[in-house]
Simulated scan of single mutants.
Amino acid sequence: MKQKIVIKVQMTCEKCRTKALKIAAKTYGAISVAIEGSDKDQVVVIGEGVDSANLACSLRKKFCYAAILKVEEVKEKKEEKEKKEEKKPPEPKCPTFSMCHQYPQFPMYCEPMYCEPVRGPYSSDGGCFIM
């Protein structure tokens, strides 16, 4: 189960933000780490099996203040994945079908043909063969 953890950390400079991102990235199960918020004081961690209390404790050791704001489940959008999959046009059953569409100026080639697979003497689909 993917979860999104938002932790408010007291960070005043860019060097502090970099340290906070490194600490969050080292945690077990973290997939992505980012900084958000109007004052850029929130560390957002998305991952599977991330221990939010342990992460807050390790941030608290370095920055003296870290409070968990949110822990929520991230749901993947399956509908968007299904829309991206495109349907392929059906393949022609007969080789002359594609020839008809390549050369529409020659209507004599567009006669319907019956295609049957070629069976050899040793085929196993019901033909008579001697072992």
Rank of each mutant, 00 (worst) to 15 (best):
I68K: 04
A56M: 03
L21N: 00
G120P: 04
Y28W: 14
K8A: 02
P121I: 06
A34H: 07
M99P: 01
K22Y: 03
V33E: 04
A66M: 04
C13S: 05
I7Q: 00
Y103I: 07
Y109M: 08
C64V: 15
E111M: 07
T18S: 07
A20T: 04
I46S: 02
Q105E: 13
K84D: 11
G47A: 02
V74F: 03
D125W: 14
K19V: 10
A30L: 09
S58P: 03
A67R: 02
K22S: 06
I7W: 00
Y103S: 05
K70N: 12
F106T: 11
E80A: 11
C110A: 07
S123F: 13
A20Y: 01
V6Y: 01
G37W: 02
I68H: 03
C115Q: 08
E79Y: 15
D125Y: 14
Q3N: 09
K61D: 13
F129N: 11
C13V: 04
C115G: 05
K78C: 03
P104N: 01
A25V: 10
C57S: 15
M1G: 02
P104K: 01
P107K: 05
K8F: 03
C13H: 02
S98E: 12
Y103D: 07
K61I: 12
P92I: 07
E79P: 05
C64P: 10
A25S: 14
I23C: 02
Q102R: 09
E79K: 12
Q102T: 13
K40E: 15
C115K: 09
S98P: 04
Q3V: 07
M1Q: 02
S98Q: 11
K75W: 14
L69V: 14
E14N: 08
K70M: 10
